[in-house]
Design a protein around this nucleic acid. Structure first.
Lengths: 195, 195
DNA sequence: CGCCGAGTTGAACTGAATCAAGAAACGTGG
DNA sequence: CCACGTTTCTTGATTCAGTTCAACTCGGCG
């Protein structure tokens, strides 16, 4: 059973009959990828929205100096996609990569549009996802504009406590927009304050 | 005629008959506010999506140290709203304020939902707006994560050349996430490179 | 055992913030 | 149309958060 979480997620987020959920789930392609695999590369047009059934993904960019910047992590029960690229059929600026062996469900844009037409409930659901995404992005911008490295770290561990234990610190640093060395120092500071 | 731009905007962005556009426009409330007026305050639930017919708005937050951070500007032909707050009926973290005497059209969430139901074209239109918004927010995050003050400034003047002339530099600095003094120095640097 | 990647620590450096003061531009009322 | 006060912009001196570079530690794993 590779779509357990997805079925659950739909059930608890859409007002919809079980038959429709079965229908949706069955039309989704399941993909099992191993750690390191890329599901999207910079320059490609994003073809799918991914739902993480099991495992962990990251979305990141590489800047002009060759540095990686993580835009977001996606653990179990998260959707991830370059919505802009997928919707506007533009080349993406991002990579999506598996940080662990991961099982994802693939929803392509055509299927999303189709479901939105035949099922008002699904339409509503997708709308909710979009607004949720916007909410997250806005929070992230506010953080980057107004919080120090330490504040951003504290915010991170509150929001994503489990991810801290699943990825090397260097990736958390990349998400926070600081160097691994700086993150190490922030953590040291905090540990001393604890005492 | 207070909805000239809005009518134009709809006409060129939706595949829809003129009668429907008339209908939409007539149901929208026009509001003329003077410079300084707040259309949304931190803590309020955002009730409207605003379309800027004439003038200029800003969306900003105030952090724990009392500093302002501009999330986005909205000149003519732009929509602005705290989509998250409006959709989820949550208190907003942001202010929306007029930087010039401004004419806006108000679309409330109920009206948006209604139109989305009766007009597939409008639904599609709103979807486009949402995706566009996501695209912008993502670009902004990438900028904040990977670009220096100077690079962000150059990016800004390329994206919003007119706004530079319409607001004090101190607000541009706030958008870029730097102090007014730093922006002044960045500009000085660039002027010297020009020579 | 020895290597290797992840994390830590130190020292020097740097981009931007802060604080402070002066110059320029602006609008409002007389 | 000028005068005055207010806001905006610039410049300098200093400080600071975070980067960079380099060396070292630690824990796994072949």
């Amino acid at each position: 059973m590779n779509s357990f979480r997805f079925t659950n997620f739909l059930t608890s987020n859409i007002e919809i009959d079980q038959a429709m959920i079965e229908h949706i789930v069955q039309k989704c392609v399941t993909k099992i990828v191993e750690k390191g695999t890329f599901l999207l590369q910079q320059g490609d047009i994003c073809q799918h929205t991914f739902f993480v059934e099991h495992g962990l993904l990251r979305q990141f960019s590489i800047d002009s100096k060759g540095k990686e910047h993580i835009i977001q992590f996606a653990p179990e029960n998260w959707f991830i996609s370059d919505r802009g690229s997928q919707y506007f059929k533009q080349p993406s600026s991002y990579f999506i990569q598996a940080l662990e062996d991961t099982t994802v469900l693939l929803l392509d844009e055509a299927f999303i549009l189709h479901l939105s037409k035949v099922s008002p409930a699904f339409l509503e659901f997708n709308n909710k996802l979009l607004h949720n995404h916007i909410l997250h992005l806005q929070t992230r911008i506010t953080q980057l504009l107004s919080a120090t490295a330490e504040e951003r770290y504290l915010h991170f561990i509150k929001m994503y406590p489990d991810i801290l234990w699943r990825v090397p610190q260097t990736l958390v640093a990349s998400y926070l927009g600081i160097t691994p060395e700086s993150l190490s120092r922030v953590r040291k500071e905090l540990a001393q304050k604890q005492k």
